[in-house]
Amino acid sequence: MKHLHSGKVRDLYQTDDGLLLMVASDRISAFDHVLTPDIPDKGTILTQMSLWWFEQLADVVPNHVAGPGPDGRSVLCRPLRMVPVECVARGYLTGSGLIDYRRDGEVSGVRLAPGLVDGSRLPEPVFTPSTKAAVGEHDEPISFERVVSEVGADVAEELRRITLAVYRRGAEIALERGIILADTKIELGWDADGVLTLGDEVLTPDSSRFWPLDRWEPGRQQPSFDKQYVRDWLTSPASGWDRASGEAPPPLPDDVVERTRDRYVEAYEKLTGQSFTG
């Protein structure tokens, strides 16, 4: 197979028959850095969760999956011409969206009601796209009008429709399992017939924020099933890391690695109803 690309988390290869093999590594990234050490089984968890979600979303949007790969962490995919926009949906206010809201009362050009706090549920999910940055660079929020200028009005409307439909289906399923889907980022591209198609991964702890419903309390940072635990450690005094220094983050301690893995496994098992066996 021909190696095509390595991202923060995934490696991409081209097979002899023209399909792509997408391999999810155990790498974990935060704040635009790939961290060390790896999180054991993370790649397998992400792949199996994505495959499960692709099935749940099959009637919402077509996807790029052509079949399982030779191991539990890889997927055979049809090639797509990717949309040059990160498609983000938010049902709750937190993270970078909260930072932008506190600064100017809006997220990606979407004006929100005053008085919202960390963890506030929005009246309706909103489409908050961003740029698609290269490895080591940071995605920046952009307005819907900017998306229109990038891809045209019709495509922009379809990106918004699909992104919000994926979010609503995911949030509905997660809520039935006692989990809040706070926000998610999806990747879309055109297939060989020009149909917008869901690619990459979908609704995993790497691309989404998952919160336990019974512990949701607006006004504070929420407990989570995703890599927010790693972000929190990196920004705590315990890490000794100054994010503004430009230096690489320190290695993750063993207990942070173990607890992060536990959160990924718990998210997989709660959402899919299946036991993770590695």
Rank of each mutant, 00 (worst) to 15 (best):
S25G: 00
W190N: 10
G43E: 08
E106R: 13
E150Y: 11
F144A: 08
G109P: 01
P68M: 15
D183W: 04
M49Y: 06
T94N: 12
Y92F: 11
D226R: 02
Y167E: 02
E247A: 15
K227H: 02
R160T: 05
S29W: 09
Y92H: 09
F276A: 05
A113C: 09
P70L: 14
P84D: 01
V195S: 14
R103E: 15
A238Y: 09
R146W: 10
E140F: 06
P141V: 03
M49L: 15
A153E: 15
E124Y: 07
S74C: 08
Q48E: 11
D41A: 09
P125L: 13
D255L: 09
K42P: 09
P70G: 10
T204K: 01
D11H: 12
D139H: 07
F127V: 04
L76S: 07
V110W: 01
V257F: 08
I39V: 15
S207E: 08
F225V: 04
T197F: 08
G170H: 14
V147R: 04
P212R: 03
E201R: 04
H138R: 08
K227V: 08
T277I: 14
A156S: 01
P218E: 01
F144K: 01
G278P: 00
W190F: 13
H33I: 14
V202G: 00
R161A: 15
Q222I: 11
R121I: 08
E157H: 15
P253Q: 03
G189H: 04
L76F: 10
L46F: 07
L57G: 03
P218M: 04
L181I: 02
D104P: 10
S208C: 13
V83I: 15
L271I: 10
T44I: 13
G194A: 03
T36K: 13
E201K: 05
V110T: 07
Y264E: 06
S239Q: 06
D214I: 07
P37D: 00
C77Q: 05
